[in-house]
Amino acid sequence: MVRRDRLRRMREWWVQVGLLAVPLLAAYLHIPPPQLSPALHSWKSSGKFFTYKGLRIFYQDSVGVVGSPEIVVLLHGFPTSSYDWYKIWEGLTLRFHRVIALDFLGFGFSDKPRPHHYSIFEQASIVEALLRHLGLQNRRINLLSHDYGDIVAQELLYRFKQNRSGRLTIKSLCLSNGGIFPETHRPLLLQKLLKDGGMLSPILTRLMNFFVFSRGLTPVFGPYTRPSESELWDMWAGIRNNDGNLVIDSLLQYINQRKKFRRRWVGALASVTIPIHFIYGPLDPVNPYPEFLELYSELLSGPLV
Score class of each variant (00 low, 15 high):
55 L>Q: 08
82 S>H: 09
140 R>S: 02
46 S>M: 12
6 R>W: 12
285 P>T: 01
39 A>S: 15
262 R>A: 05
173 L>S: 05
84 D>R: 11
210 F>E: 04
150 D>M: 01
67 G>F: 05
80 T>G: 10
248 I>D: 11
142 N>G: 01
175 L>E: 12
251 L>W: 04
36 L>S: 12
171 K>A: 09
208 M>Q: 03
5 D>W: 12
195 K>R: 12
190 L>A: 03
35 Q>M: 09
5 D>P: 13
261 F>M: 04
235 M>L: 05
210 F>C: 00
219 P>I: 01
179 G>H: 03
94 L>K: 07
80 T>R: 06
245 N>K: 15
223 P>R: 00
263 R>V: 08
42 S>E: 15
125 S>M: 02
130 L>I: 12
230 S>C: 06
302 G>I: 09
157 L>N: 10
91 G>Q: 05
17 V>T: 15
36 L>A: 07
242 N>W: 14
82 S>W: 00
267 G>K: 07
282 P>R: 05
176 S>M: 08
301 S>H: 09
93 T>P: 09
186 R>D: 06
38 P>F: 00
43 W>M: 03
288 P>L: 07
257 Q>F: 11
165 S>L: 04
204 L>M: 10
234 D>N: 10
269 L>C: 05
277 H>K: 13
109 F>W: 09
61 D>G: 03
245 N>C: 07
299 L>E: 08
297 S>A: 08
253 Q>E: 10
282 P>S: 04
153 A>H: 11
177 N>P: 08
273 T>D: 10
27 A>I: 15
268 A>C: 03
42 S>G: 13
229 E>Q: 06
37 S>R: 15
221 F>P: 02
98 R>T: 08
138 N>H: 08
236 W>M: 10
100 I>Q: 03
55 L>W: 08
91 G>T: 13
100 I>V: 11
47 G>W: 03
20 L>P: 06
100 I>W: 05
83 Y>R: 05
20 L>E: 07
244 G>F: 02
23 P>W: 11
90 E>H: 11
142 N>W: 11
255 I>Q: 11
41 H>E: 15
43 W>F: 04
172 S>T: 15
231 E>C: 03
131 L>Y: 04
119 S>W: 02
5 D>Y: 14
201 S>A: 15
75 L>Q: 04
204 L>A: 01
216 G>H: 02
54 G>R: 02
264 R>A: 01
60 Q>K: 10
71 I>E: 00
136 L>R: 13
276 I>R: 14
75 L>D: 00
156 L>I: 15
113 P>W: 00
279 I>D: 08
303 P>I: 12
168 L>Y: 13
46 S>N: 09
300 L>D: 07
147 D>E: 06
277 H>R: 12
45 S>I: 01
15 V>F: 09
8 R>I: 09
183 E>Y: 02
245 N>I: 03
188 L>F: 01
231 E>L: 04
17 V>Y: 11
208 M>Y: 00
6 R>V: 13
68 S>K: 07
256 N>C: 13
267 G>T: 15
271 S>V: 10
226 R>H: 06
20 L>M: 13
84 D>S: 11
67 G>D: 07
228 S>H: 05
188 L>N: 06
8 R>G: 12
50 F>A: 02
296 Y>V: 09
115 P>C: 01
20 L>W: 14
114 R>G: 06
